[in-house]
Design a protein around this nucleic acid. Structure first.
Lengths: 214, 214
DNA sequence: GTTTTTGTACTGACCAGTCAGTCCAAAGAT
DNA sequence: ATCTTTGGACTGACTGGTCAGTACAAAAAC
């Protein structure tokens, strides 16, 4: 994915202004939601005149859509990098999953506001940016599904594994655990959180009862 | 939880109107978000005049808060019932967890709009209803944590189990998997989805590598 | 000298919340 | 039986304010 796909010309100065606007918008929208956040607020927090917002983005929703694309680009890059690194080190697909969980946690710890905003908007229908969101969601899920699929192909995971559903469940597990960690027990370390999730994934909580799949 | 806690007098007619308003509000807010949904829209979809909304609720946010309390009451009751039923049948705590996952999926399948709206608002800060949301979240999490705690006490789950984090992760797993199911593959059966999540929880995907907890 | 930013002022649509008044069923009053 | 009153439920036009987006001249920045 071209990280600067939305910045046609893009002088350094302009890019810096855009970045300031992204940062201002992401926290405000995470806290208040898209509709409740005003363009005046975004401009003020970015330390920029309102006119500048409209000089750099066609509208409030375009600003938001580019913000989404930008953030998800960072996340998928990070997940892919984690999977590749494990593969190069000769790890199993289970190790790759573990590394991706860690990468996910690191991303959320670094960009909690973006994550919040992403979750809040993901399942909304009837919104202007819904199609953008679909594309962007598919990119994240595809990375995880890829690892699952390879694991099934190599026999490491059972071939009755439900790839799309498992991918979604993994995303949910990491997402909600991490947001809860940030919101309600921020003093805990990333290692701590990672260990708890690994444990859960290894079935040392749910137990190893016989399958009763339908 | 007293289901009519917010309706002091409550004639049958009034209660019916309130119910219509809840139903109209929940879908609209799930689709568009709280701020983007207007009171006029809610009134129109409920088939009442705008004044009626304000006759029945002090404000738009009070309507929303009562909606939250109402919905979460249904969810916790359902989860508790699932846990109790398993316990009475002599099942393990792992079985109870499994039953609660099923109950969660059933709830989400029945009230997808409510679930959507809950997820979207859960991690927002600085909102008027934030305290309501905290209380209501705690009720859900407490039910799950209770089962985990009992499982640890009885030795069924390892005593290094991180109860709050695991509870959050479980909620996330079910929530995201279910929302994805509803949104992207609604043709699949509940049994199917339940089986995939059970499998994941039993560690038959993540593998059974040695722990490397911090 | 061209691009980008600023600051201020403005418009027009939209929206939460209000309020004077309607509707009606049930309870007296005659 | 007929008239009057009462009060809860509901109505919808209206108000005061808010906000996305525009306009533009002058100043920086490059």
């Amino acid at each position: 994915m071209n990280s600067s796909s939305a910045a046609p010309g893009g002088s350094a100065r302009r890019e810096a202004t855009r970045q300031k606007l992204y940062e201002a918008a992401v926290t405000l929208i995470a806290e208040q939601g898209f509709s409740a956040t005003t363009v005046d607020e975004i401009a003020e927090r970015a330390g920029v005149a309102k006119g500048t917002v409209y000089y750099n983005f066609a509208s409030k929703s375009v600003l938001f859509e580019e913000l989404l694309r930008h953030g998800v680009g960072l996340l998928t890059a990070s997940l892919r990098e984690a999977a590749d690194r494990t593969a190069r080190a000769g790890g199993s697909k289970g190790d790759a999953l573990d590394a991706m969980i860690r990468a996910g946690l690191e991303f959320i710890a670094r960009y909690p506001a973006f994550t919040q905003l992403y979750v809040a908007e993901l399942w909304r229908t009837n919104r202007a940016w819904q199609s953008t969101l679909m594309v962007v969601r598919q990119e994240v899920v595809a990375v995880i599904e890829g690892v699952l699929r390879e694991g099934v192909a190599s026999g490491e995971f059972g071939d009755e594994t439900d790839i799309p559903l498992t991918a979604a469940a993994l995303v949910g597990m990491v997402l909600v655990a991490a947001l809860d960690w940030q919101a309600f027990q921020p003093e805990r370390s990333l290692d701590d959180v990672h260990a708890a999730l690994s444990r859960l994934l290894q079935g040392r909580v749910g137990g190893h009862r016989a399958a009763r799949a339908g």
